[in-house]
């Protein structure tokens, strides 16, 4: 599909639409919701950063979208639409044909994501042959092209190499090539740089940005690294205790946070773009999912919390212009005093 084609369609329908997604895990201590009422869109050629602490539900959302929730976790409510069509209720086999073909996924650790006993060429061609109507020679050529695209030098010569013959950064490039080789519309990158050296991280982020721009794919970039978000994302979704607490353009959210949690997160993150300043921490810790406080889940740690925050219902994004799930959001001007 051409770039124009993708972008033309992009104006009409977002590539990915998540609507009020609820993921539930039944446990002995009751049912918990690692993802609770999350909604967002990703358009073609756009990178949405999903950020939050460990256990905030970022990865769970990504896994739900690609249909890889580990039982007993399950989608308990909401809709997932890919190019306007629901995919959360597809049969196993139809969902399998969406995975890889329509949605590519990149995992955190490139050292363990590749099968050590198969050559990278085998792994690429098996994916291509599974999803695209091409023969073995064509698949081989496409595999080489995919490797060249992600910047593997001498791709033709290295296609028969095994994963252990590549460095960590090169392996993550191979993983990206694998995720993209069947030309998906959406790529879910789950902590793609966390396991890499800092210098390699920057290369991988640059690669993701370039591929997103050139191929017009939508990218869901799941990370806990604010620096990666600032560098790569167009828009950012901040998650806390399974809920979406803030959603907006990256520049806006990073410099003029409206939700007190986002503001606290920014104040505790060293970012070159915000200059030298003292880092502050948010008091307390994120509550466990089976012990959420009533009302806004952030209220026990929030300086601005009032009685309304401690009573149900919890605020949604509509509480503050579709931007922040907070009854008493920070005003854009108050940002300096809060941070």
């Amino acid at each position: 599909m051409t770039r124009e084609g993708r972008q033309g369609r992009a104006n009409a329908t977002p590539v990915l639409s998540v609507r009020d997604l609820i993921v539930e895990i039944p446990t002995r201590a009751g049912t918990v919701r690692p993802t609770d009422g999350v909604s967002y869109d990703i358009r073609a050629g756009e990178i949405l950063g999903v950020v939050g602490e460990s256990g905030a539900g970022k990865s769970m959302t990504g896994n739900a979208v690609i249909g890889l929730l580990d039982p007993p976790a399950r989608i308990a409510g909401g809709e997932i639409l890919l190019n306007g069509e629901r995919i959360d209720n597809l049969s196993r086999d139809k969902l399998r044909k969406v995975r890889g073909r329509k949605i590519g996924m990149i995992f955190q650790d490139p050292l363990t994501s590749l099968n050590p006993l198969l050559t990278i060429g085998d792994q690429l061609t098996e994916t291509i042959l599974e999803h695209l109507p091409v023969g073995q020679p064509e698949a081989q050529e496409r595999a080489i092209a995919a490797l060249e695209e992600v910047g593997i030098p001498a791709a033709r010569a290295r296609i028969d190499s095994y994963p252990h013959e590549f460095s960590g950064g090169m392996r993550q490039r191979v993983v990206i090539a694998l995720a993209l080789c069947a030309e998906p519309d959406l790529v879910i990158a789950d902590e793609p740089t966390t396991a890499l050296d800092v210098s390699v991280q920057a290369q991988i982020i640059a690669l993701l940005k370039r591929l997103c721009r050139e191929k017009g794919v939508a990218v869901m970039l799941v990370t806990h690294d604010m620096g990666v978000i600032a560098e790569a994302a167009d828009r950012v979704a901040v998650m806390y205790a399974g809920r979406l607490v803030e959603l907006g353009p990256v520049r806006e959210v990073l410099t003029r946070a409206r939700h007190p949690y986002t503001a606290g997160l920014m104040a505790s993150t060293p970012l070159a773009s915000l200059g030298h300043r003292r880092l502050r921490q948010i008091p307390g810790a994120m509550p466990r999912l089976n012990a959420l406080p009533p009302g806004c889940p952030f209220n026990p740690r929030c300086e601005r919390a009032e009685d309304k925050c401690r009573q149900p219902p919890a605020p949604g994004l509509e509480a503050c212009e579709g931007r922040a799930a907070c009854w008493f959001p920070l005003t854009p001007d108050a940002e300096e005093s809060a941070a």
């Binding site: 690609i66 890889l68 399998r96 044909k97 969406v98 995975r99 890889g100 073909r101 590519g104 996924m105 995992f107 650790d109 363990t112 994501s113 590749l114 099968n115 050590p116 098996e126 994916t127 599974e130 999803h131 993983v175 694998l178 995720a179 069947a182």
Partner: peptide
């Protein structure tokens, strides 16, 4: 349980 099996699933293999 390994990651590469999960990755193989994510690639839509049978």
């Amino acid at each position: 349980r390994q990651d590469y099996i999960r990755f193989a699933r994510a690639r839509g293999l049978r």
